[in-house]
């Protein structure tokens, strides 16, 4: 747990609701397993928002799915490290224990609101289902609670829409339903995997504000996955930048934006649209190497202007700048 808690910045704070320690997740290509997430560590405390950013394919979703225990069977596996959710070691637990944690103490919101709800089941029941499963509520009581949850996420006329089906809802409304669904059992940890990417710009802001609001009210630990640095600046407390399965930089949001230190973070910020922060990031020159062609040392070396001989060896995460919790993984940027 030492590595995970190195970035403590609130002394005497509550213990973290989610601890990920040296997590390595592998993906099978043909007969070989490749590291798609390489020994990443972080912790999220109640009421705290940790943003996970990085280009497409850098391993953000795999990290989330590893925490949930929902990696695609036969294709993905956790090959090392520890995941502790609300004090329960998920990596050591058996499947029934993990089932009892999912949807109860840890919830997840997915990127695709259009396909993440079951088209043939009523909305109310889909929200109520985990209450029936984990809390043993009667269907009636669970539906009653589902109505309250839908009101909480501001679905208009919630009471009359319990029997409606997903196709009768817009994308933004469906994502609200997904939030209600994930919050049903008052989880300690919420993972939101690009919850607004698929939505209209105006709806994006509404949904984010709603999530931030609910999070503060319920005291959730939120792991927010995004590739929008504007979102990071406005809602996150801390940020973690991933590249090719490695954490390349992490730290408090203010310190990060004041002094982005990894060449990849700099490139991300430079590519960030100025005014609205809503359009997707401009691509950075070059491409992320595929899993089978990852360099052994620093994985960003193939695209990096500061590359030199030492980059064949993976640099450690080391403090940079004034804030002791601001860490960077780059030989060129290590404070001497």
């Amino acid at each position: 747990m030492t590595a995970a808690l190195r970035d403590d910045f609130i002394p005497d704070a509550e213990p973290p609701a989610l601890v990920v320690d040296e997590l390595t997740t592998q993906i099978r290509v043909g007969r070989t397993w490749y590291d798609a997430v390489r020994g990443i560590s972080f912790a999220v405390r109640p009421r705290e928002t940790l943003a996970l950013v990085g280009e497409s394919g850098c391993g953000k979703s795999l990290t989330a799915l590893s925490v949930m225990g929902l990696l695609p069977a036969g294709v993905g596996r956790v090959s090392g490290g520890r995941i502790v959710v609300d004090g329960v070691d998920m990596t050591a637990a058996d499947e029934p224990t993990r089932e009892s944690m999912r949807g109860d103490r840890i919830g997840m919101i997915f990127q695709e609101p259009m396909t993440s709800l079951n088209p043939v089941l009523p909305i109310g029941f889909q929200v109520a289902e985990s209450l029936i499963q984990h809390r043993g509520l009667s269907k009636k009581a669970a539906l009653n609670r589902a109505r309250e949850l839908l009101e909480l996420v501001r679905v208009p006329a919630a009471a009359s829409r319990l029997d409606a089906y997903p196709h009768q809802f817009s994308g933004g409304m469906r994502q609200r339903v997904m939030i209600a669904l994930a919050l049903a059992c008052d989880p300690k940890v919420l993972i939101a995997d690009e919850p607004t990417t698929a939505l209209d710009v105006t709806i994006q802001a509404q949904v984010l504000a709603l999530m931030a609001d609910v999070q503060k009210r319920e005291g959730l630990a939120l792991l927010l996955i995004t590739h929008n640095l504007g979102v990071v600046a406005s809602v996150a407390d801390r940020v973690m930048v991933m590249y090719g399965g490695d954490v390349v930089e992490s730290g408090p949001v203010r310190a990060f934006f004041a002094r982005p230190s990894h060449p990849y973070s700099e490139a991300l910020l430079a590519a960030m649209p100025r005014i609205d922060g809503d359009t997707p990031l401009q691509p950075i020159a070059g491409q992320v190497p595929t899993l089978t062609q990852m360099p052994t040392g620093c994985r960003f070396a193939t695209r990096c202007a500061l590359r030199h001989d030492r980059c064949a060896e993976l640099p450690p995460l080391t403090p940079v700048g004034d804030d002791p919790n601001h860490l960077v993984r780059c030989w060129a940027r290590m404070s001497p």
Partner: peptide
């Protein structure tokens, strides 16, 4: 499908 992943994320057997 995605909705099956959602169902599993709810912790259903």
């Amino acid at each position: 499908e995605d909705y099956v992943r959602t169902a599993r994320a709810k912790g259903l057997p």
